[in-house]
Computed example of a mutant assay.
Amino acid sequence: MPAKPEILKLSPIANSRLFHIEAMELRFSNGVERRYERLMTGGNGAVMVVAINEYNQVVLIREYAAGLDDYVLTLPKGLIDPGEDALTAANRELQEEAGFAADQLTFIKQLTAAPNYMGHRIDVILARSLSVSKLEGDEPEPLEVVLWPLDNLPELFARDEFSEGRSIAALCLVEQLLRTT
């Protein structure tokens, strides 16, 4: 494995409530220097919840996605609040977005999205032993909950409204785990 490049300089470019864009002046081990830009996220990270009920159905939500200016079908997810760990945040987000709490929570894997440009990481959490439990969240409108049979993921993956790569990856990871256990 090559040596990591030396960071010569970090310069802020722009900031928002959620994101920080910075320029990185780098020198690689072969002496080549380049300027990169990256989108950093602050805070404590994020979680994505693969919740499976007693009927072997995955809990999905339909929500507005500003980046696409459309409604999408996806997994419950959200930021880890200060003082929370990933499992606590996953259970809270599941209650806020889908109206379920889980008695069994298992960390699956940390995923990244476009790591060449973004520092965003999200922890995939498997939630089992669900019960009805609703917490007030920060969503601007009620989210539609859709229960999808776990054994019918190919049809879900074929739907245009289910296109988020992290959700697809999370479901594939959980499906593989459940096949081997």
Rank of each mutant, 00 (worst) to 15 (best):
Met1Glu: 13
Met1Thr: 11
Pro2Phe: 09
Lys4Met: 08
Glu6Gln: 08
Ile7Ala: 08
Ile7Ser: 07
Ile7Trp: 06
Ile7Lys: 10
Leu8Tyr: 13
Phe19Pro: 02
Phe19Val: 07
Phe19Asn: 12
His20Glu: 12
His20Tyr: 12
Ile21Val: 10
Ile21Leu: 11
Glu22Tyr: 15
Glu25Gln: 14
Leu26Gln: 04
Leu26Trp: 03
Phe28Cys: 06
Asn30Gln: 05
Gly31Pro: 07
Arg34Pro: 08
Arg34Leu: 15
Glu37Ile: 11
Glu37Ser: 13
Arg38Asn: 09
Met40Thr: 08
Gly43Asp: 03
Gly43Arg: 05
Gly45Asp: 07
Met48Asn: 07
Asn53Leu: 03
Asn53Arg: 03
Asn53Cys: 03
Tyr55Gln: 12
Tyr55Pro: 00
Gln57Arg: 09
Val58Tyr: 07
Val59Asn: 03
Leu60Val: 05
Tyr64Gln: 03
Ala65Pro: 05
Ala66Glu: 04
Gly67Ala: 13
Asp69Asn: 12
Asp70Met: 12
Tyr71Gly: 09
Tyr71Leu: 13
Leu73Thr: 13
Thr74His: 04
Leu75Thr: 01
Pro82Ala: 01
Gly83Ala: 14
Asp85Glu: 14
Asp85Cys: 12
Ala89His: 06
Ala89Asp: 03
Asn91Phe: 04
Arg92Asn: 06
Leu94Ala: 01
Glu96Met: 05
Glu97Tyr: 00
Ala98Gly: 10
Phe100Gln: 05
Leu105Trp: 11
Phe107Pro: 00
Gln110Ala: 10
Ala113Trp: 14
Ala114Cys: 04
Pro115Leu: 06
Asn116Trp: 00
Asn116Ser: 03
Tyr117Gln: 04
Tyr117Trp: 05
His120Val: 12
His120Lys: 13
Ile125Gln: 01
Arg128Val: 06
Arg128Tyr: 08
Lys134His: 00
Leu135Thr: 00
Glu136Lys: 03
Asp138Pro: 00
Asp138Glu: 08
Glu139Val: 00
Pro140Asp: 14
Glu144Gly: 05
Val145Tyr: 04
Pro149Val: 08
Pro149Gly: 06
Pro149Phe: 03
Pro149Gln: 07
Leu150Asp: 05
Leu150His: 08
Leu150Trp: 07
Leu156Met: 13
Leu156Trp: 14
Leu156Ser: 12
Arg159Thr: 12
Asp160Trp: 15
Asp160Gly: 14
Glu161Ala: 12
Glu161Tyr: 04
Ser163Gly: 14
Glu164Gln: 12
Glu164Ile: 11
Gly165Tyr: 11
Gly165Asp: 13
Arg166Phe: 03
Ala169Ile: 11
Ala170Pro: 01
Leu171Trp: 02
Gln176Leu: 12
Gln176Asn: 15
Leu178Ser: 13
Leu178Pro: 13
Thr181Phe: 09
Thr181Ala: 09
Thr181Arg: 13
